[in-house]
Write a protein that binds this DNA or RNA. Sequence first.
DNA 1: AACACCAGTCTTGTATACAAGAATAGACAA
DNA 2: TTGTCTATTCTTGTATACAAGACTGGTGTT
Lengths: 234, 234
Amino acid sequence: MDKTAENGPWADESGDTSGRKKGQLHAEAAGKLRSMILSGELPPGERLREMQLCEQLGVSRTPVREALRTLAAEGLVDLLPNRSVVVSELHAPDLEHLFVVFGAIEGIAAELACQKITEAEIGEIGRLLAEMIDFHARKERAPYMQINQKIHQRTVEIAANPVLYTVWQSLVPRVERARALANLDTGRWTGALFEHTKMFTALASRDGKLLAQLTREHFLNSLPFLQSRLENDG
Amino acid sequence: MDKTAENGPWADESGDTSGRKKGQLHAEAAGKLRSMILSGELPPGERLREMQLCEQLGVSRTPVREALRTLAAEGLVDLLPNRSVVVSELHAPDLEHLFVVFGAIEGIAAELACQKITEAEIGEIGRLLAEMIDFHARKERAPYMQINQKIHQRTVEIAANPVLYTVWQSLVPRVERARALANLDTGRWTGALFEHTKMFTALASRDGKLLAQLTREHFLNSLPFLQSRLENDG
DNA sequence: AACACCAGTCTTGTATACAAGAATAGACAA
DNA sequence: TTGTCTATTCTTGTATACAAGACTGGTGTT
């Protein structure tokens, strides 16, 4: 089971349709649609007509339909039988549900990671954290977010549980979308960074219980900020 | 987001292809294939030829392919690009990964359920537990397992978190398959029942932390039994 | 006997065609 | 004006056709 990230989201695709081998158009389509949803190009509630997507993506309906099944499994779209597919909504209450679960998942990952992490990996995370602090000082949000994402991903990878990784992957798109829709509040930004330093300390001392606790709180703390932004936008 | 169980596994299908409205052949196909895998009719490692499945299910390749994407998202099959789809293997180490995550998920569910459960629902779970004790006394394994499954499901439902429910649903097929492949050891059976009574006490007194702990242990305890059975079988 | 190579067959990936169920707009009645 | 009914159009669901990449078996060479 779990040939980890075989065809999962975030596997490789980043619009680099050029270098791809022939075939697997449906995976390519899924990647493009996913980033269109995450970027907001396809807003929540948007009705997706298959033929329209075919024209935009330059493929036929077959791979498009298969891609839509994949996105449905990721929770990015809702399949309405015999009706259109729509980009799933993202309401504030849903967000709470999502963050409670996601925080718990990353909490488990954190606990496992503490048991398995090597000195070299602690150093690696430490360097990433240093970079992140740097970007924060320069107020460069985009690269900050990228490093942030990488730290979380590395933690889950270090936990070395393919099932956990798959579940985590399946939730990341929605979390990322929430972050994209509601760009991080500046006040929260500094707080989040501080939490990250505390989390690193726990990780470096391999205190799994503490790190899990901090991780859950980390997500719970950012929740109200995202929720308020979502409510303002509609 | 999350039109909960819209097209997810375990939604409704149980071979009752008769009463179903037209269309949605792919959902029907997914249901049949899922139960074929869970029942062991399609054993781990089995190579699935699309045409062959078409004949068995009496539909064309299009719905079959879409069903296979769904099953891939559930982790029941692996998609090998340009090669066949195979029923995913279930090795002892994978099982540990699965149970750690699943136990944690049900642990979260248990904690949430304790916050939200009503007196009526406590009564309902209590009655289910009594039935289960009955079936254990009579050594009727199949109905016991059914009630067991139902208790777990009701707990997750009571937690009232659609994201959690979806994640839980996505893991259940694999857990069920593990149970099916390695029928429960008799010694473990009594132990599991005892754990269930303890868990009910915690639930009835709404002790979320305790119940979460007991739930995680419940899965961890049954793990070695399942693993040993799997190793014997190959 | 072992290995490499090649042709034929099989299987998947994609496109297209057709059928059936929804959405929509317009006409007609209240 | 508003509501409803119907006919047309649109969209999805499914089947089939075609192309391209894998597998298999046999043949020839070393």
